[in-house]
Nucleic acid binder design. Structure first.
Lengths: 256, 256
DNA sequence: CGCGCCGTTGACCATGATCAAGGGGAGTGG
DNA sequence: CCACTCCCCTTGATCATGGTCAACGGCGCG
């Protein structure tokens, strides 16, 4: 339960510049139960600390010693792996998502986490021992639930990357973003992308040029409007149709 | 702690046909600690049951209620997802690996698990409640460790699928198989593939024809010998070079 | 023996990567 | 204020990787 409030708190910026976005309340946070178990009685939770990050700022870097898990409450975060100086976007994290869970059991962050825009997070300080062995059972089962969710998310991403064409990947990506912030305007679902084209392309495993061309094609076909980081989905039904994997009539056979 | 020994035990075949392969002892099993915590005192463990499956037999199907986790001790298992009658191989599981962990927290198996050849498993019976809330802390932290490993495995697979060419994927795949059963013969590492070409291709996200052609090319280049499901890796160093992602000299930039 | 599945090979072609280039916006220094 | 740079986004031209279609031999099995 010891916690040193030292240099690692530098990122905590207490400026009160308002953030031009809705904030996710604790009720919608996937870590709510985890937070609750850490402060079961009184309202003050010594493990949880809110923080604000500017675009580009780091939450942690690959190789850092594990010190806790983050919950995004506003803004967006990307996690990236560095392989031979070649950055690979592993995932994007939006309000309600967790960041850093994959390091809970290994004790070392596998990836680097960077805020994409101005971002609010809750930092849940945990030593590896706490999160693994000394916590409450309810806390641990919550961790299992969260990591299990992450695992299934990553598995479905793997399937996407194996089976879907570039266009299908983009459609799926846009729809998942739309699902996250589903303000369906009268003229379509509006998205303000927090990340660069380069990051999206990298994440989806396609070239930036391909991404641009397909954005254009979708625009020409009336599926969406796109202007830089602003995107308006005009025909969600058609996008869902695009995203659906082509039906292959193979039946799964029994033999080995 | 209640456990009904009913129809779900049908797969347990007590025939004593010998298996022509080495068996992984408990010492090398990734679930050893889990097993131990379930039977801390005496040697008998009511939760753990050994079983033998013939090639093609099911461990469980997608949608089945979660009833426990499996450890493969001999043979091989594939997990597959069914999307619109289109089977997708999610992963292969070899001796020492676990199967079914992703269902621990959701209570329902996400994928279908099928033995590829004659296979020995340990079935660790767990209700969802047991595995989540009522277990011992050590047991739960073991589950967290195992699921975390799975998660990182799946993340690195996602990276592979985004960045690597078909040839690189195959090289990586073969090397990972070789790492599992590293009997380095004087004439190279010998592998007996337990799965069909179709399954490998499906898993790697390439067409079967491409897989065959690249096997042939690698054979022509003296990297390996291949005859059906028998493969001998002749030049492991060259394969590792092939598998290495091409160095892109992009530096990860700070801004959002 | 016929059937079905597996592995293999050939021919063809589409998707998408690569190379090249240019416009626009933000930040910086003269 | 302007010149300069850098990065982001976009578009065009070209080409290779790899997917699709078709066909065939081998093997196990009813």
């Amino acid at each position: 339960m010891t916690k040193q409030t030292t240099a690692s708190d530098r990122w905590l910026q207490e400026n009160i510049t308002p953030l031009g976005q809705a904030r996710v309340p604790c009720r919608q946070c996937s870590m709510q139960a985890v937070c609750d178990t850490l402060a079961p009685e009184d309202g003050i939770n010594p493990h949880v600390r809110r923080g604000r990050l500017g675009g580009g700022q780091l939450l942690f870097q690959a190789g850092d010693t594990f010190h806790g898990v983050y919950a995004v409450t506003a803004g967006a975060v990307k996690t990236i792996a560095m392989l031979d100086k070649d950055p690979q976007v592993v995932d994007f994290h939006f309000p309600g998502d967790t960041v850093g869970l994959d390091a809970v059991d290994s004790g070392v962050y596998t990836y680097t986490a960077r805020a994409l825009t101005e971002t609010l997070v809750c930092r849940v300080d945990l030593s590896q021992a706490e999160s693994l062995g000394e916590g409450f059972p309810v806390f641990q089962s919550e961790m299992i639930r969260l990591i299990g969710e992450q695992l299934r998310h990553e598995q479905s991403l793997s399937i996407l990357l194996r089976k879907q064409s570039a266009e299908q990947r983009i459609a799926t990506f846009l729809l998942s973003l739309a699902g996250a912030s589903m303000w369906s305007q009268p003229r379509g679902v509006e998205l303000q992308l927090p990340m660069a084209r380069k990051d999206i392309a990298n994440y989806l495993g396609v070239a930036v040029e391909t991404l641009c061309r397909l954005f254009k094609r979708m625009q020409d076909e009336g599926l969406l409007e796109s202007d830089g980081r602003f995107v308006r989905l005009l025909d969600v039904a058609a996008l869902k149709e695009l995203a659906r994997p082509a039906e292959r009539h193979e039946e799964e056979a029994c033999p080995a």
